[in-house]
Amino acid sequence: MKLEIHHLNTWYGRAHILFDVHARVGHGEVVAFLGRNGAGKTTTFASIVGLVPGITGDIVFDGTTVSGRKAHEIVRLGLGYVPEDRRIFTDLTVEENLMVGRQPPREGAPTWTPDMLYTLFPNLAEMRKRPGGQMSGGEQQMLTIARTLMGNPSLVLLDEPSEGLAPKIVEQMAEALTEMKRQGLTIILSEQNLHFARLISDRAYIIEKGRIRYEGTMDELEANPQVRDAYLAV
């Protein structure tokens, strides 16, 4: 298993947010966490990557227990994280943004160079010297992903990559993610857009009010209209 989560419980102060969340993700899989905003997707991701202090339970990445460790230590093991809201560094140029994400190459994970990323996201190639603040939302979203790939991760957590993007840009995003998968990356994404998730994911977990309510393959989910309607009806 690439990533295993057992009995993950998370608190913000005294507020209990996640309840016994569990998941297992295999090498090279693309898994979607589906659910509405506030369901606990972002908190799950932040907990995995060590950005929330109040967690209990086990998170095992590549055989190493990472729960309780600091964010930068976890990331350096090859677990890349792309936050929601495209938190790029607006004062830094595209090149500099990529430089911040740079980590040494690692075994068992594709190694990325800026040039390869410019091929993956052709829009970025035209604006290497442009400050991040002067890019459109779609370009910024691509830059956040590219920046994380500079760390040569073997697993990437993508938090709502399609949120707030034009449908056309979302299609480009789907193509890029498919290419990343082809390179052997394991991808976990959180989504509310089922159409988009369907294009790229193998399996899905549905999370609601901090609990995992459903897990199964994308095809099973398709075939299960009750679940779809209960949590994700379109």
Partner: peptide, 15 residues
């Protein structure tokens, strides 16, 4: 469709 909607793969095209 060209500037914004794309092919419609990522929203409920039919419905």
């Amino acid at each position: 469709q060209a500037v914004y909607l794309g092919t419609g793969a990522v929203y409920g095209k039919e419905k």
